[in-house]
Design a protein around this nucleic acid. Structure first.
Lengths: 198, 198
DNA sequence: GTTACTCGGTTAAAAAAGCAACCTGGTAAT
DNA sequence: ATTACCAGGTTGCTTTTTTAACCGAGTAAC
């Protein structure tokens, strides 16, 4: 009734974490473009083909945390309780993420998270690939919302809101404010944005 | 001009060490017969067949440190400088081991080493297999010494001396004395024994 | 304008590890 | 006496990892 945590699966997960950790820490130290995949493989004590078996591209070494959330919006809509509107479900989900200071909301002031976000946003190839992930997310959400152009529009609007909100939060954090301090504004912004949509 | 330490070799060595360490520490804690190979494999986070690929028997999990010294006496004889008698070479080799407090001489008071020796000597199957190792060692030494019965006799006598000396040293350590304190006696005993032989 | 790097990424073959199922021998309940 | 279990080891078979070699694009040297 759960994950059949065999020896194999456990070691795989650990290897994956080791690779991603080694990569991110090297990237944060020297910059994304200044670190080669060979160096990452060496630091993680694995071979280059193994690295690419775990992560399809160099960018995914950084973005896998977002990739792991892929399709989350669609899942939220499909899994909502009966009688609840899709946008309402998404709104509550975002609000919950805000309350637990989930990094995806931009409302998190842990130094590692901040540095990680700066790395992503200041590296063109990373930001580029990240938007590609968001596009796929949008497709999935549109599918979950129904058919026709209006489903696509709605999906795009909701995700655009989340992007804008996250970006605004991140900006305030980047300006030196604490997450707890920003939280009320973040909630107010979210309410306003979702109200406008609904 | 050195070990071509590939990724593969490095990981194998680490796995081997991890297995042996897990095994010995479990044995020291609960006793050799009270720990199953399944528990060892679980503690080392490997599967049972993998364990037996690294160590042929359960006993070897403990005795591999001795096994690694296999044939050492024979090598000392074959590698001696010209003009040096075999027994002299072995005598000097043992004296050098004594001076560096090599565990094989029994003259070592590190708690881990003491506990390890007690484990070996107080577990029949271990002591039994250890003597089997020594017999093989004896064969190899006899081969290195030449042919005929006298070579075998000489080999047996030298190794018997080393066994007795090591046992005597270990006994004094087990009685609570320090290695440094025992060292002079150990040297004197060795001299006397080897003098008697020569 | 070659030559020769380096980089991200791939391929094929061989080694190593995992897993489940089995064998043999002992020992404890029934 | 049978059953059943647990011990140390083994046997195939599959999955994972290493290795070395390669590809195609960019770029610096000469």
């Amino acid at each position: 009734m759960s994950e059949p945590t065999g020896l194999r699966a456990r070691k795989k997960e650990r290897t994956r974490d080791a690779i991603a950790d080694a990569a991110v820490s090297l990237f944060l130290e020297h910059g994304f473009d200044r670190v080669s995949v060979n160096e990452i493989a060496a630091a993680a004590e694995i071979s280059k083909p193994t690295l690419f078996r775990y992560f399809p591209t160099k960018e995914d070494l950084v973005l896998h945390r977002f990739a792991d959330h892929q399709g989350e919006a669609a899942r939220v809509v499909r899994g909502r309780e009966s009688g609840i509107e899709p946008v309402t479900a998404l709104r509550r989900h975002f609000r919950a993420a805000l309350d637990r200071y989930d990094p995806v909301t931009g409302l998190n002031d842990h130094p590692q998270v901040v540095a990680f976000h700066r790395l992503v946003f200041s590296t063109p190839s990373l930001a580029g690939r990240l938007t590609r992930y968001q596009l796929e997310d949008e497709e999935a959400l549109a599918d979950a919302l129904g058919e026709g152009i209006q489903a696509h529009v709605q999906a795009a609007q909701v995700l655009a809101i989340q992007r804008v909100l996250a970006r605004a939060n991140w900006q305030k954090i980047a300006d030196g404010r604490s997450a707890g301090d920003v939280h009320p504004e973040a909630v107010a912004d979210a309410d306003e944005a979702f109200n406008q949509l609904q």
